[in-house]
Write a protein that binds this DNA or RNA. Structure first.
Lengths: 154, 154
DNA sequence: TGTAGGACTTCAAGTAACTTGAGGTTCAAG
DNA sequence: CTTGAACCTCAAGTTACTTGAAGTCCTACA
């Protein structure tokens, strides 16, 4: 599945990045802000990582993709590490995030409709002429849309 | 409709902000980056605005809400100002943005499903116990989900 | 074994798009 | 004329990284 990648420990930062779906600078950044532990080093100073690090970083990246801000990811990592708190904490975190995502979805749907209308109106009414009166521009000033792009002119 | 607001010129920055749906610092910021023209000042140094500014700022805010980055808004403002370029430019800009929004929508829908599943799984399987094996945490490391939160414990 | 060049190192600054804070001035109402 | 809200400027903070400079290390190939 990953033929080019060494399956056991001692991953370089580049290999870890590739396998976890991040970038080397991002990993260094996460180390700097304490989101991942300080990596062990080789003699030359290069960072080395093992499978546990890969798992952790994958977890973090997935959380980020799901829209959790770093602070919440920190809590989740914490939960994962010490396992001392209730599983319900994690569920509630996910639930709150789900609500956020649903809100964002609703907003985006409105935007989609508005943009689609804009494009559509212009397609219907414009003929490519110069556009001080273009519906798109006029619509966006929230005054009522008038004719688009003046009289048709190929 | 806006009983507390003076309908003609000489709006203060606060009044302009309120009517355009922005904040005073944001307006100053826009002035600083050259997105809006430098405001005229009263003797005391306070900025004053007129209806043209309100229209322009409303336009900008709407563009921002529609997800256009500042640079694109700048182009659109430009179009609005000199009206020299084709209306089709505006439409294409809107169209590209629409595509972005649709992509984002699709991604968010996937996220929504994933989060909903997470929450649901945990509701179904968790009993609130301490959670090193919680599905949420395990799912996110992309290993297969196992039992949630160990044996049920109130 | 030498070497070329790709990957790594650190540190600093840049990015987007504002927001927040400090410290001081001006305006409008009573 | 006073008081307090709103304004002013300038600087720094925010989020989550990315990019750049200048230098070191590692590995594969000849």
């Amino acid at each position: 599945m990953f033929p080019d990648i060494d399956m056991d420990r001692a991953l370089s930062i580049g290999a870890l990045a590739k396998r976890s779906g991040t970038n080397p600078p991002t990993i260094r950044y996460y180390e700097e802000i304490g989101l991942v532990r300080r990596a062990e080093r080789r003699d030359g100073g290069h960072r080395t990582y093992g499978d546990a690090d890969l798992k952790r970083l994958t977890f973090i990246r997935r959380c980020r993709e799901l829209g959790f801000p770093i602070d919440q990811v920190r809590s989740l990592v914490d939960l994962l590490e010490n396992g001392a708190r209730s599983c319900l904490d994690a569920r509630d975190l996910a639930r709150r995030n789900l609500e956020d995502v649903q809100t964002k979805l609703a907003e985006l749907k409105v935007l989609e409709a508005e943009l689609a209308k804009l494009v559509n109106d212009c397609d219907a009414a414009c003929a490519g002429g110069p556009g001080p009166d273009c519906v798109i521009l006029e619509d966006l000033t929230q005054t009522r849309a008038r004719s688009c792009c003046g009289p048709k002119a190929a």
